[in-house]
Amino acid sequence: MKILVIQQKMIGDVLTSSILFEALRQKYPNAHLDYLINTHTHPVVENNPFIDNFIFFTQIEENSKRKLFQFAKYIGTKNYDMVIDVYSKISSNIITLYSKAKTKISYYKPYSAFIYNHNIKRLSSTELDCGLAIVNRMQLLEPLNIEFKAIKPQIYLTDKELANSKLFLESHNISLKKPLYMISVLGSGATKTYPFEYMAQVIDQVAETTKGQILFNYIPNQEKDAKAIYDLCKPKTQNLIHFQVFGKSLREFLAITSHCNAIIGNEGGAINMAKALNVKTFAIFSPWIDKATWNIFEELGKNESVHLKDFKAELYSKKSEKELKPKANELYIAFKPHFFREKLNLFLEQTL
């Protein structure tokens, strides 16, 4: 049996959807399991023992309808028995349509329902600690009679990667015998980035409470913004920040993060990756994002998060993400660091 799982776009989505492979492998131990993803997301699922092969969806297919259809026809030559389309957008609809698979599963959408044998309606809430992102993905396996299991995403680092990252940190005068914190200083965009001044206050609190060594998570083209946040921190906090120490690749970032006591800051891919490395996390959610979907595997003292809605529920009165996103800036301004100062301090004490 050959099975294809499709999850394009974001790193966090690709990592979270990788849980399906563990469940599929348990059900079909001899099946050939392929994962169709965007090239840049591969590092978070590299070495996953449940995945046999990766198929990459590139910018070429992304930017050309002709190339997309050629790619879809290529998938049709692979003779898949089953396609599980987690992405569920136009491009993956087309790929699934051309796949020739007998069993096609995706989320229900009126315009694409005819393509799939099984159209699963997403749940809008759950009481399970694993979070909606996990629950809704596992729902896709129900037509295969695979019972729900709260599988946690995992990232698989090699011994060599761990050893090299340790040497790298030590070469920059960072002691692994002392507390070490990664700060997710920037989100994936302005609407997912806690205001710089507020973030500096959070970093000051981390420094004051832990006296720990601090790393910033950023990529070279974000250095200007990261430096702006650094400049807003107190001088004694700046003395604890190793600003120029960061991973040059995503795998390097993962290996460095694995040595940290915790990661703190903007909710997003970095937080989800840290969870998959079993590193403690404290996430600050963008005020327009639905926390219930992405606060996966919340656990007091281990994986915690805060959202403006926790403190100012009256601002939300039945408004959708689409309605809230244009107001992200004013909502962020209302999301004062002092709202969660005590909660963050209690969390930091658990990391020492």
Score class of each variant (00 low, 15 high):
87 Y>I: 04
116 Y>S: 03
140 L>R: 05
130 C>P: 02
172 H>P: 08
109 K>S: 10
90 I>M: 15
173 N>R: 11
128 L>S: 13
105 I>F: 00
82 M>H: 00
139 Q>E: 15
95 I>C: 08
152 K>P: 05
157 L>N: 07
146 I>D: 03
82 M>D: 01
85 D>W: 02
166 K>G: 03
163 A>M: 12
117 N>G: 10
80 Y>L: 09
122 R>P: 00
94 I>R: 11
80 Y>T: 07
160 K>M: 12
82 M>Q: 05
124 S>L: 11
126 T>Y: 04
135 V>N: 02
137 R>Y: 14
118 H>V: 06
165 S>A: 12
99 S>I: 04
168 F>T: 07
130 C>S: 07
126 T>W: 05
171 S>A: 09
82 M>K: 06
108 Y>M: 10
159 D>A: 14
90 I>K: 15
149 K>H: 06
101 A>T: 08
166 K>E: 11
90 I>S: 15
159 D>V: 09
160 K>Q: 14
83 V>W: 00
169 L>S: 02
112 S>L: 09
134 I>V: 09
115 I>A: 10
159 D>W: 05
142 E>F: 14
160 K>S: 13
148 F>Q: 05
125 S>A: 15
152 K>T: 11
103 T>M: 11
130 C>L: 04
96 T>Y: 00
109 K>N: 12
144 L>Y: 05
76 G>R: 04
74 Y>W: 12
146 I>G: 01
75 I>T: 01
115 I>G: 04
85 D>K: 06
131 G>Y: 01
127 E>S: 15
76 G>E: 00
94 I>N: 09
84 I>M: 01
117 N>A: 07
163 A>G: 10
158 T>R: 02
166 K>S: 09
112 S>R: 03
155 I>H: 00
162 L>H: 06
157 L>G: 04
